[in-house]
């Protein structure tokens, strides 16, 4: 046992004597191709700034108009009939967010399992599930809202379907990553006693991933509340519809009241999810 050190292969040479030298050797070099790509990327960025970034003149010219708009927005509307209608729309917004997030999480869970490397019962066909999650995630929520408004008509149902798909895309990806990153040793131990893939998921993977699942779900809820606020702009229910009408009819005090209400709702929801995260963490 004592001579095991002497039997090790010799570790000589500059890389061994200078810690980190090997890492430095791996740093990318500025090859002609990389230099060309860097210059091209810089040119595209500069051209984009020229095309769409606001110029100083435009910004300075807009300040008086912004001031005038803010003046017309204040004070916010306090008519009880309007506040009552706004309250109902806010409740609908929260309902869209909550129900959509709940069903989205329920849908994302099997999608995550089916797409997780090393865990999916689909084997090589897991790309089908992964592709579905990518599709849900990469298409923006307003585009999904337009799709569902066309499919099921105007109103909260289109909004809820949008939030379901949006949440399934978001949670599906992060749930799958958490599953893949879970400790493999309990999985191997259960495999050795004859566990099936579903047993391993339920007994070894889910308990390990639960803190990550809870965190991701709470973030998804925050995102859903923000999304559900704007979905009404394209007719998918919620407070967004009132906001759109207020701006279109130049009812700026009503618009400011709605914006204030949205601010309060989002803030309260963030505080609530932070508190839940601390409680459940």
């Amino acid at each position: 046992m004592a001579d095991t050190t002497s039997s090790r292969p010799p570790t000589s040479g500059p890389a061994a004597s200078r810690p980190g030298a090997r890492d430095i050797a791996r740093w990318p070099r500025l090859t002609p191709l990389r230099f060309t790509l860097l210059v091209a990327a810089g040119a595209v960025l500069l051209a984009s700034i020229g095309d769409v970034a606001p110029s100083a003149d435009r910004l300075i010219g807009a300040v008086p108009r912004m001031g005038s708009l803010l003046e017309r927005m204040l004070p916010p509307e306090t008519d009880p009939a309007f506040l009552g209608r706004m309250g109902l729309r806010l409740v609908e917004t929260l309902q869209i967010a909550l129900v959509g997030t709940l069903f989205g999480i329920l849908l994302s869970f099997p999608l995550a399992w089916l797409s997780a490397a090393g865990l999916s019962p689909l084997g090589r066909l897991r790309w089908l599930a992964r592709g579905t999650v990518s599709l849900f995630r990469t298409v923006p929520d307003l585009v999904w809202a337009l799709f569902f408004v066309s499919a099921v008509g105007l109103g909260a149902i289109a909004g809820t379907l949008t939030i379901i798909v949006d949440t399934a895309g978001f949670c599906g990806r992060f749930f799958a990553e958490a599953m893949e990153d879970s400790d493999k040793r309990p999985r191997e131990a259960l495999e050795a006693v004859g566990a099936r893939k579903l047993d391993i998921l339920a007994s070894a993977v889910v308990p390990q991933c639960m803190p990550s699942f809870v965190n991701t779900s709470l973030f998804a809820l925050e995102l859903s509340v923000r999304s559900s606020v704007v979905l009404g702009i394209v007719g998918a229910g919620g407070i967004g519809q009132e906001l759109k009408s207020a701006f279109e009819l130049f009812q700026y005090p009503k618009a400011s009241a709605i914006i204030l209400a949205i601010f309060v709702i989002v803030l309260v929801m963030e505080q609530l999810t932070d508190w839940l995260r601390r409680r459940l963490g």
Partner: peptide, 26 residues
């Protein structure tokens, strides 16, 4: 029965649940 070097227990569940898991092949 198979015992691994790093035991492979599921940390967030009870010792009893881990033992119950051992009957998964039954």
């Amino acid at each position: 029965g198979f015992v691994f070097q790093f035991h492979g227990l599921v940390g967030r569940t009870s010792a009893l649940s881990n033992v119950v898991n051992g009957a998964m092949g039954q």
